[in-house]
């Protein structure tokens, strides 16, 4: 078995495991293990994971606390704090695990049992990177040309121009890469 496929298997098992255990202590132990495995990158991994889930989890946690306060649940047996601790630890564990997987694994190698899947994913990924850069440029160009906050109509026009550009580029890319595929004999072997 090659390395990346083993990583994928371990990752999926880890994800399943992290959703089957419910004791905060074990979830915390899992998080510690993931951080230990990530070695020198642990601090930046944890920081990125916290930033990623911060908005959503803060919203959920505060709403939950608000609801518990409203229902006067703090004095009753399953403490709302315990629920929130478990929830946030689990989310953090899973997010760190995913970031570690992304950093250590070449997904394309892990999926190379299917030629078609790796091909589609690779092509889509490279095109996506090009598109994200272009998307940044569209956004920044409008900012660069605007002396005041752009009006609604200008922002509509800018979004429409970007969308048309992406549609046209993807149609062209599809045509070009199918020609390239044919010339490389992809469909005959």
């Amino acid at each position: 078995m090659q390395r990346d496929r083993i990583h994928l298997g371990l990752y999926l098992a880890g994800v399943l495991g992290a959703t089957l255990i419910h004791a905060p202590a074990w979830l915390a132990a899992g998080l510690a293990l993931v951080l230990l495995l990530s070695g020198r990158d642990a601090a930046s991994l944890l920081r990125r994971a916290v930033l990623t889930v911060l908005a959503f989890n803060t919203l959920i946690s505060l709403s939950y606390l608000g609801m518990a306060w409203w229902q006067d649940a703090f004095t009753q047996a399953p403490s709302p704090w315990l629920t929130l601790l478990r929830l946030n630890l689990r989310v953090l564990l899973l997010t760190c695990l995913t970031f570690l997987f992304i950093a250590r694994t070449n997904l394309f190698q892990a999926l190379d049992f299917s030629k078609s899947l790796t091909y589609v994913l690779g092509l889509a990924y490279s095109q996506t990177l090009t598109f994200s850069r272009a998307h940044d440029d569209f956004r920044l160009a409008l900012a660069s040309r605007s002396l005041t906050r752009p009006s609604l109509i200008d922002r509509y026009r800018a979004s429409a121009a970007a969308i048309s550009w992406f549609i046209e580029k993807s149609l062209h890319a599809a045509t070009q890469s199918s020609q390239a595929l044919r010339s490389r004999g992809f469909f005959h072997d």
């Binding site: 272009a134 440029d137 569209f138 920044l140 160009a141 409008l142 660069s144 040309r145 605007s146 002396l147 005041t148 200008d154 026009r157 800018a158 429409a160 121009a161 970007a162 550009w165």
Partner: peptide
């Protein structure tokens, strides 16, 4: 913002990124 944007202009490498008017 107004002064800087009117005095320093950037021509993007991809002209399509800049064009959106009818």
């Amino acid at each position: 913002h107004r002064r800087f944007r009117s005095e320093v202009a950037l021509l993007f490498q991809n002209p399509d990124a800049m064009l959106f008017n009818p």
